[in-house]
Nucleic acid binder design. Sequence first.
DNA 1: TTTATCTGTAACAACATTGATTACATGTAA
DNA 2: TTACATGTAATCAATGTTGTTACAGATAAA
Lengths: 144, 144
Amino acid sequence: MSISSRFAVGIHILTLIELNKDGVTSSEFLASSVNTNPAVIRKLMGMLKKAGLIEVHPGIAGARLAKELSDITLFDVYKAVNVVQEKELFSIHESPHPDCPVGRNIQNTIEPLFTAAQLAMEKVLRNVTLEDVVKDIATKENIC
Amino acid sequence: MSISSRFAVGIHILTLIELNKDGVTSSEFLASSVNTNPAVIRKLMGMLKKAGLIEVHPGIAGARLAKELSDITLFDVYKAVNVVQEKELFSIHESPHPDCPVGRNIQNTIEPLFTAAQLAMEKVLRNVTLEDVVKDIATKENIC
DNA sequence: TTTATCTGTAACAACATTGATTACATGTAA
DNA sequence: TTACATGTAATCAATGTTGTTACAGATAAA
């Protein structure tokens, strides 16, 4: 099972808004680049807006970044699109049997281990900004 | 979205096999402790067996660990129960538009970042063994 | 004010995965 | 032979994802 591609698409959206900042980045334009439906993009834009990452207004075409590129980390996007809940990357089975020494302790024993693993993953995401992503694409395109 | 509880149940199974090593750990016994169906347990036991973590034989009740407790890491269990594929904790949208500078590069740019995050998470799992889990439960039960 | 165009959002379908359940074939030992 | 265990397939309900359609509401321009 994989984490929803909303995360990757969210990064795509923000990156394209930046690289197209001299133009109008509408949901249709984004949908074409991502290769999906404009309604899907608008739903994601709603999440990014709610998280304070972009500015977008009903009736007005286009979206703009609400923060500096270097102030937006992949973790911000990850949280914005709501793909993984806090402490819930891994799920633990409910209601193990309380009469068993393992059953009555397994959840409390496992939980901090799973949380530590999740936090390690999230720490990597915190250390990458959209600026890094944009620069990497610029390098690949030789427009640096 | 969460990683399947097969992972947590796999840990539960192995831990209980160890703590019940003087008895017979059948799928029914395990199912009772986990609070699920014996067939679910047998399916998981099949995965753990295939990964070389336990020994179990058709027609013979009970399972035994195939390795030392300290030689089984959470990562081994995680791989055994097949909850996350290599490089696929995060999914990336397919077929972005090749005519767009972002569309034609986003996958290659994002992939190593996602992989790094996944590896950081897995590294934590590699550093915890079943022995740690069993000891923690023993401590909680005051049977240390 | 009307019209065109955009965002915001809800409803629905198609699909995949999970976990539970049932059933039964197969293997083992008494 | 019998009792009981594992191995495994089929099915189902519940859930989440993604795509699609439709339409309400906001805005700007004619």
